[in-house]
Every structure is written in C-alpha cells, then in structure tokens.
Amino acid sequence: MPVATRPWSADPYAHALRRRRGPLFLRRADGWLLPLDVERWCAGADAADLSALHRCEGSVLDLGCGPGRLVAALTSAGRSALGVDVSEAAVDRARRLGGPVVHRSVFDELPDEGGWGTALLMDGNIGIGGDPAALLGRVTQLVRPGGLLIVETAPQEVDERVEVQVDDGRGATGALFPWARVGPRALERHSRPAGWRATTRWTVGERRFTALRSRRAGVPR
C-alpha cells in the first residue's frame, strides 16, 4: 500500500527536493497525473522566469516560492524580495541559496502586509488552497494600492478545483489537499471581483503569464 504523508511537507516532495529531480506528480482522484518540474524548480531562473522578474515593481513577495530560485535571482540583482512557502524542505533549500524566506502559508500573517510592490504566483501557484478567488482576495491585502500581481497560469484554458496528492510515481504519496488549475481567461474572470485588472499577457515557450494591477484604493506606500 502507498505510504501517505503530509502534502508539501515530507516525502515524496521533500525527498525530490533533496535529490533535485523527479519524477514527481500531482495525482487527481481519477488517476490523472500532472508532472511537477522539480529539476527546473531547483535550477536557476530561466528565460521565462526572467520575463516575469523584469516586470516586477518595488519589493517582491514570492508566494509558494519552493526551493527559492526566484528569490535568489531577485536578491542577487539587488532587489528587495521575500519568499513564502509551507514546505520546510523548500524553505531550507531557499535559505541555502541566500534568499530571505519565511516558513508560512500565504493565508498566515506575513511581513509588511499591504506594502509589497509586486506579488508572484509562479509555477501554477494560483492553485494554492483550491480557491482562486479567495487566494486573489488574499493577495490584494498583501500588495500596496495599485500594486502588481504576476501569475503563471495553466498553458491551456482550464478552470477546475480538485483534490490532489503529491505522488512520486513509485508508490509514495502525500495526503489529499485542495488545488486548482486556472487558464488565462479563467484567471481574468476570478480576478475582477477580487479587485484586480489584467493588464498584460505573454508567453515564453510553453509557459503563460498574466500581469494584473490592484484596484484597491488608498495612498501607495
């Protein structure tokens, strides 16, 4: 029988990060598998990543930062940045790269709430919590009025909320947890009621991104 562990917090996710390679998947209840690109997450920022980082404004909050490649790239370029992740293994690796990271959920209290210039939801992290509208609403509380949010969406037009578990393809699985997959059009539908206005879409290779601007009123800091 597969051995169940906590999502993102123990084997097989932590084990894959220690090895810096997969295989690793998100498995739906119907058996469908979404490959997770552990090798890319553990490498340096690539051209697609940099296309997003070059658009960042002010201080940058990377939500679901994983092993920290984006925070490391930002800080090495002299930018003020902070990573946030629930995985102890990911946070440990990110800190070894020299990036400032906190071991928390996006829904926990975070430093400088309401003052961040840009928030990042990369690598499909719009799926965090399984409720894109709630997540987008939370991010409005984190960035400054008029602040920026950059989201990496699913490459295809999809809008689904499911339960998944981390699976290494060899019998080890994590506990079930809620997740979402959102394409560009669905992101815009969810973003408007949450106080965001989509401003730019772009594609690098097979990866798709959307930049959104907060409509929250107030005096920017």
Rank of each mutant, 00 (worst) to 15 (best):
M1P: 11
A4N: 10
R6T: 14
R6G: 09
P7E: 05
P7A: 08
D11A: 15
H15F: 03
A16S: 06
L17Y: 01
R18S: 13
R19T: 08
L24R: 00
F25D: 06
R27D: 00
R27W: 01
D30V: 02
D30R: 01
W32D: 00
E39H: 03
E39N: 04
R40V: 07
W41K: 05
A43S: 13
D46R: 06
D49H: 05
L50F: 08
C56L: 09
L61I: 11
L61K: 15
D62A: 03
L63W: 05
G64F: 02
C65W: 00
L70K: 03
L74H: 12
T75A: 04
S76M: 09
S76V: 00
A77P: 00
A81I: 04
L82N: 10
L82K: 09
D85C: 09
D85M: 09
V86P: 00
E88H: 14
A90E: 03
R93F: 08
R93L: 15
A94E: 05
G99I: 08
G99T: 09
V101N: 11
H103T: 04
S105D: 08
S105G: 06
V106E: 03
V106G: 01
F107A: 07
F107K: 04
G115E: 14
G117L: 10
L120K: 06
L120N: 09
L121C: 11
G124N: 07
N125F: 14
I126T: 06
G130T: 12
P132V: 04
A133P: 01
G137Q: 11
G137K: 01
V139M: 06
L142A: 11
R144Q: 13
R144H: 03
R144P: 01
P145Q: 14
L148D: 13
I150E: 00
E152A: 10
P155R: 12
V158S: 07
E160P: 03
E163H: 08
V164I: 13
Q165H: 15
D167W: 11
G171R: 04
A172F: 07
A172L: 10
T173P: 04
A175S: 14
A175M: 11
R181L: 10
V182P: 02
V182R: 05
G183D: 04
G183V: 13
R185G: 05
R185V: 15
R185I: 07
A186M: 10
E188W: 02
T199L: 09
R201G: 12
G205H: 02
G205A: 03
E206T: 07
F209R: 11
G218C: 03
P220E: 06
P220W: 08
